[in-house]
Simulated scan of single mutants.
Amino acid sequence: MTLTLTVSDEVRALVPGFTHLAIEARGLVNGPSDEASSALLDEAARRLAERLDGRTPDQDPHVAAWRAAYTAFGAKPSRTRNSAEALARRALADGGLPRINRLVDAYNAISVAHLIPVGGEDLDRIEGAMRLVRATGEEEFTTVAGGEETVEHPEPGEIVWCDARGVTCRRWNWRQGPRTRIDDGTTDALFLLESLAPMTRGELLAAGDELARALERVSPGARITVRDPE
């Protein structure tokens, strides 16, 4: 069954021009990071350094657009950075990008190379449709703090991704909850690429195509479908 994704009118009114691209991948075989997934991350870090050419990630126009979007719904972009900026900063720092597992490495590499937020969800753990909404503050977000599971609530007006059970990602694309996270046992997954102007539609599609190829590289034989909302 194809997962339904919706973006609320409130979000579209607050941040006009937002668009996304979804990739469904089924029959995946995940596992610990390996030579292939590590190579994707190394190449992404090289491409990022070339793109920035000495600038900091927040000076990139697409990252700057995400910072403005965060400010629009009341978040502080220097304290809660969007996932693309946070990964880019790690890529440029000593130690570089973390190695998580083959699938996460693949989508993190695309995020860094294209400076675009990319998320991954285990399809078997999503309940009902996924919606991008402005939170009421009553929604539940299950996370882990101090090694123990805990429930938080988003701020009223905060932009969140949620399913029928609760919030799956807070502050748009800042922090994913562990409930739907991709792990070594994931076989079916949804990957979400999110963009704002000045990123063009062609650039978004190019990033999606590259992610599809990366998934095929780290998990040969997977059935991959690119879902273009337009």
Rank of each mutant, 00 (worst) to 15 (best):
Met199Ile: 08
Ser78Leu: 13
Gly128Asn: 04
Thr71Asn: 06
Glu155Asn: 15
Leu28His: 05
Gly128Tyr: 14
His20Leu: 07
Pro154His: 11
Val11Lys: 02
Ala25Asn: 13
Leu21Thr: 05
Tyr107Met: 13
Ala13Leu: 00
Leu3Asn: 10
Gly202Trp: 11
Ala164Arg: 08
Asp105Pro: 12
Leu192Lys: 02
Asp58Ile: 04
Arg12Ala: 12
Cys162Met: 12
Leu3His: 09
Glu139Tyr: 08
Thr168Lys: 07
Gly96Asn: 02
His114Asp: 12
Leu14Gln: 02
Val133Pro: 00
Ala36Asp: 09
Gln59Ala: 11
Trp66Lys: 05
Pro77Asp: 15
Val144Arg: 06
Leu48Val: 10
Glu148Met: 12
His62Val: 13
Leu205Asp: 15
Pro32Ala: 03
Pro57Cys: 02
Pro98Asp: 00
Leu40Tyr: 13
His62Ala: 14
Arg81Met: 06
Gly27Trp: 00
Glu149Cys: 01
Gly221His: 01
Val11Thr: 01
Leu14Cys: 01
Arg179Gln: 09
Arg55Phe: 03
Asp9Ile: 01
Thr71Tyr: 02
Asn173Glu: 03
Arg179Met: 07
Ser8Asp: 09
Cys162Asp: 01
Ile116His: 03
Ala84Thr: 05
Ala206Phe: 06
Thr2His: 01
Phe73Val: 07
Thr80His: 10
Arg47Tyr: 14
Thr80Ser: 02
Leu132Val: 11
Ala49Val: 03
Arg134Phe: 05
Leu40Cys: 07
Arg170Tyr: 07
Thr80Asn: 07
Lys76Pro: 11
Gly146Val: 01
Arg46Met: 13
Glu127Gly: 05
Trp174Glu: 01
Thr168Glu: 01
Asp188Ser: 04
Pro154Ile: 11
Arg90Gly: 02
Asp188Asn: 13
Leu5Gln: 03
Pro117Ile: 12
Ser37Met: 12
Thr200Ala: 15
Val7Gln: 02
Arg223Gly: 02
Pro57Val: 05
Gly208Ala: 05
Leu193Trp: 04
Thr142Ser: 09
Val226Cys: 11
Arg181Met: 04
Trp174Met: 11
Thr80Val: 14
Pro156His: 15
Arg67Gly: 02
Gln176Thr: 04
Leu123Val: 15
Arg89Val: 02
Asp163Glu: 07
Glu139Gly: 03
Asp34Lys: 04
Pro98Asn: 00
Met130Ile: 12
Ala106Val: 01
Ile110Asn: 08
